[in-house]
Design a protein around this nucleic acid. Structure first.
Length: 262
DNA sequence: ATGGTGGAAGGTCCA
């Protein structure tokens, strides 16, 4: 049984106590973190091993980005991947327990202006998603699980207001189109939506800039878990840990959990 | 058109 948690932790060092709480409350045996924001020398390997996660795969850089896979199960074939010619610590993968491949991805946020001609960050984001689509379009010997902060909320009910956010980076038509192309080319299934109706609004991120996040509830679903279609029947649970947003010193993203009988 | 907050780095950038 796999209990996978994906979480944009926004600094692993600041969030160590919350990571401990995640382990205590949700009992995952595989955790994919994004935005660890610590270079290897500053990464708290020992604290994490003490939580029971002996196997750690890290791809990090100073200050920004950084992805890590924490596992109670064996990790093999650990690989760091580069897209759009940048070595910027956004994608790491590993073979878990010799059964399936997990890919932990942090898609670029894309800046504020949704125009690739004038905003290089947005151009980077679009190109990154296109490259990822190509990367995952080939057949793989082991089944794949993709997760992470994709920084795109594709469906109307992945955002608090479809209309209000049509020109907001994360929900523009061009981003949604590219993410859907990625999804279709890879023949993936959305492990979270498999457990929630299409008509239900579900979010995994609420901005720090809104203190009334809980009452306004202007969230977006930026964090995703996709599985190869053949794995869809193996999913026994999906959960978004909204209560983490209300913790002391929270991340702006909350953990998303999927349970798989593999 | 702007500001609101948070983190890391280091005298600012990115989300």
């Amino acid at each position: 049984m796999i209990r996978l948690a994906t979480w944009n932790v926004n600094s692993i060092r600041i969030r160590l106590q919350l990571l401990e709480k995640l382990v205590e409350k949700e009992n995952p045996n595989l955790i994919c973190l994004q935005e660890v924001k610590a270079k290897e020398a500053d990464f708290p390997f020992e604290d994490i091993k003490k939580l029971g996660f002996e196997n750690i795969a890290l791809y990090s850089m100073p200050g920004y980005n950084g992805v890590a896979i924490l596992s109670k199960l064996p990790l093999d074939n650990i690989a760091q991947h580069q897209h759009v010619g940048k070595d910027d610590a956004r994608h790491i993968s590993a073979l878990v327990d010799n059964k399936f491949e997990v890919h932990n991805i942090y898609v670029p946020a894309g800046g504020d202006v949704p125009d690739a001609k004038i905003n290089p960050s947005f151009e980077h984001k679009l190109n990154f998603v296109d490259e990822a689509a190509k990367f995952f379009s080939t057949k793989n010997s082991k089944p794949r699980v993709l997760c992470g902060d994709f920084n795109i909320a594709p469906s109307e009910n992945d955002v608090w207001s479809h209309k209000a956010l049509l020109q907001t980076v994360s929900h523009t038509p061009i981003e949604v189109e590219k993410l859907e192309n990625f999804f279709k080319r890879g023949k993936f299934a959305d492990a979270i939506r498999a457990y929630f109706s299409e008509s239900e609004k579900i979010y995994s991120w609420w901005s720090y800039r809104n203190h009334n996040w809980a009452t306004n509830d202007k969230g977006r679903r930026l964090d995703h878990v996709w599985v190869d279609k053949e794995l869809l029947p193996a999913i026994t649970k999906a959960k978004i840990c909204k209560y983490f947003r209300a913790e002391q010193r929270p991340s702006d993203h909350v953990p998303v959990i999927v349970e798989l009988k593999i």
